[in-house]
């Protein structure tokens, strides 16, 4: 092994080191964003998750008005933290609808009684099918859907208080 080949291992190592340095330097991002942003919301029709509140269908999302679709569950701990923000968004006139993942009516009723109900409609997604169709990988997540049913934006995790104005603006812009 002579000539220039003897420097090859060192060169390869430097490249490797560069990759490892990049790995350390880049910010940690474990979120899996939905690739459906910019595409039409999937078509679905979910039965009501709680008595007294209508269910949710994709047709409802394409009725000309933009919506905030919140994927949540009563067993989801950060959803409790998010409830006041959702209420604030609903109070600002934004249509907020919910998709309850793997939930029971009694548990949902208790959750809504304790944390308020900002939802105009809540669909029951018992086997996470619609959640998957949206490209969502956890709860809570929120999607801004425009009047024609196109997905415009995704928030992964609970909506923080400081994000509320941004979300309201995003929904208003999504005509």
């Amino acid at each position: 092994m002579k000539g220039q080949v003897k420097w090859l291992p060192l060169i390869l190592f430097i490249l490797l080191g560069a990759a490892l340095t990049y790995g350390l330097a880049k910010p940690d991002n474990h979120n899996i964003t939905s690739k459906m942003i910019g595409a039409s919301a999937p078509s679905f029709a979910l039965r009501p998750a709680v008595p007294g509140v209508p269910g949710l269908a994709s047709a409802d999302l394409a009725n000309g008005k933009p919506h905030l679709v919140n994927i949540f569950a009563s067993w989801c701990v950060p959803c409790v933290a998010e409830a006041p923000q959702l209420k604030a968004i609903a109070d600002a006139g934004v249509p907020v609808v919910g998709i309850a993942v793997r939930d029971r009516p009694e548990a949902l009723q208790r959750f809504l009684a304790r944390n308020g109900n900002p939802f105009r409609a809540i669909g029951a997604d018992d086997a996470s099918q619609v959640q998957m169709a949206f490209g969502s990988s956890g709860v809570p997540e929120s999607f801004v859907v425009d009047g024609k049913g196109m997905i415009r934006q995704q928030t992964i995790g609970p909506i923080n208080p400081e994000d509320v104005p941004g979300v309201i603006a995003a929904v208003r812009e999504a005509k």
Binding site: T33, S34, A133
Partner: peptide
């Protein structure tokens, strides 16, 4: 699935 989550899935 890839359409929704990207090649990562």
């Amino acid at each position: 699935l890839v359409r929704r989550y990207g090649a990562w899935v």
